[in-house]
Design a protein around this nucleic acid. Structure first.
Length: 480
DNA sequence: ATGTAC
């Protein structure tokens, strides 16, 4: 497919390249990254550009790879009036996301006890396919989870008041309607709050090395300093969100003819945002998004319990504060400037992170002057980054940036390259203590199966859609 | 990602 370089780090596939494109597709990345993207990504992002009501351009972030319908790393904004909502543009794992937690503990204090700490966390935070949590909710409690999100946790003592403002959308997106969620989805979700899941989901113990602080001023605002231990939580809405996605794909698949919508790929099933089907899915998606915030909040609660036990100190005294929590699989109603005019759009971010710049009213006051914290998670071997949102992201990418490394190798291929037990040993020799539910699952997540996180982060930093603040190095990891 | 196929 023909790629036109329109600036140093932006590549365009013009509208004329494929019949039916309503807008061009734009790929963000360095030459190296764009040259290495799978052909399927270009196919998928230009299919997205054909969807009804899409504005300006279909975007692909530097960590783009082939996904269900939309590429992972895809960002697309649709008119709220006249545009569509598509589960394939959000992902099955609704509000899969990242939460970063700071501590007042130093590397010297934690390093000698990292095995004990990781083992205790492993026992307290259930992980793996089908894992059930320590919390067993009644259907009416779960209804509150869907509607109130993290506010429910704070009411119940699973969170602190001050956690709320350090979560995207304050951990509670308005518009949830549990009556739009199937009984089956609720049955799957009831016992899953406070569980990690599997695949690339993890809980990681990380350290801040002095030479990895790129912006000391912003790092200080985010509560980050040299020699500090932090924890990163990566998980989503588990079987609950997955079931909602599955349910509504079926609904949309049969509703499309009614609305005269034809898509190039059945995986792009969608419905007008204002249609009954579109609104029902949106309301159910919000339920899953709020449940995912709750899931990460309950995991944080367990983290606070375990660290308090291990270090015999109160969690507040340990400085166990949320830095921020970002969604990377979600659609949100936001206002953006399109062709010089501010308008309301439904921004789909699928494997992409919100990256609002300084002064945005949706950023909490504590961070408003510098911009929104952006968390980009690498593979469990290579480290992760904390960045900050920019004004340029508001102009170029609907306030969005990348979310992670992006796979370069299939799970199957990764398992052929290395045995889980060998990887575990190799990681331990390099100072990363890992506990995994299955050794095959561990092998699938080997660092070599992913793009180099430094390349992805360097790209978003140079493009200017988020700025590097600090790189975080893993010393302990829990995998589902 | 996912009670990894209803």
């Amino acid at each position: 497919m023909r790629l036109k370089r329109i600036s140093e780090y932006v590549w365009e596939i013009p509208k004329t390249e494929k019949e039916g494109m309503n807008v061009p597709a734009l790929i963000f990345g360095t030459e190296k990254i764009v040259n290495n993207l799978e052909e399927g990504v270009f196919e998928q992002i230009t299919n997205v550009a054909c969807l009804p009501g899409i504005v300006r351009a279909a975007l692909c972030m530097p960590d783009g790879h082939v996904g269900y319908g939309f590429p992972i790393g895809g960002v697309a904004a649709f008119r709220t009036d006249g545009g569509v909502i598509s589960p394939g543009g959000i992902g099955f794992d609704i509000n899969c996301g990242m939460r970063l937690v700071r501590t007042d503990l130093t590397v010297e204090e934690v390093q000698p006890r990292v095995k004990e700490l990781v083992d205790r966390l492993f026992h307290r935070i259930p992980a793996g396919v089908g894992a059930k949590g320590l919390l067993r909710l009644t259907p009416s409690e779960f209804e509150e989870v869907m509607v109130k999100g993290v506010d429910w946790c704070i009411e119940k003592g699973y969170g602190w008041e001050e956690d709320r403002e350090r979560i995207e959308s304050y951990g509670r997106i308005p518009g949830a309607d549990p009556s739009k969620v199937s009984k089956r989805a609720i049955e799957r979700g009831l016992a899953q709050m406070g569980t990690l899941g599997s695949g690339n989901h993890y809980l990681e113990v990380q350290i801040v090395k002095g030479e990895s602080i790129f912006d000391p001023e912003v790092a200080r605002v985010f509560g980050i300093r040299e020699d500090q231990v932090v924890l990163m939580i990566h998980c989503g809405s588990r079987g609950f969100g997955h079931q909602i996605g599955t349910d509504y794909l079926k609904v949309f698949d049969s509703a499309m003819p009614k609305y005269g919508i034809k898509v190039r790929d059945r995986e792009l099933a969608c419905a007008p945002f204002t249609s009954p089907e579109g609104q029902d899915y949106y309301k159910a998606m919000v339920c899953a998004a709020n449940a995912a915030f709750v899931n990460r909040q309950v995991i944080l609660h367990r983290v606070r319990e375990v660290l308090s036990d291990v270090f015999h100190r109160d969690p507040r005294d340990l400085g166990l504060e949320v830095v921020y929590d970002v969604a990377h699989n979600i659609a949100k109603v936001e206002r953006h400037v399109v062709d010089g005019e501010e308008m309301e759009v439904l921004v789909h971010r699928k494997g992409a992170t919100r990256s609002f710049g300084p002064g945005h009213p949706e950023i909490p006051e504590i961070y408003r002057e510098v911009g929104q914290p952006v968390i980009i998670g690498g593979s469990m071997e290579t480290g992760s980054y904390l960045l900050v949102g920019t004004e340029k992201a508001m102009k170029e990418s609907f306030g969005s940036t990348a979310h992670g490394s992006g796979r370069t190798m299939s799970r199957h291929a990764a398992k052929r390259q290395i045995r889980g037990s060998e990887l575990r040993q190799r990681m331990e020799e390099r100072g990363i203590y890992v506990r995994a539910v299955t050794m095959s699952g561990l092998a699938e997540e080997a660092g070599f199966a992913y793009k180099n996180i430094d390349d992805v982060v360097e790209a978003v930093d140079r493009i200017g859609i988020s700025r590097k603040v600090v790189k975080l190095k893993p010393i302990g990891n829990i995998k589902g």
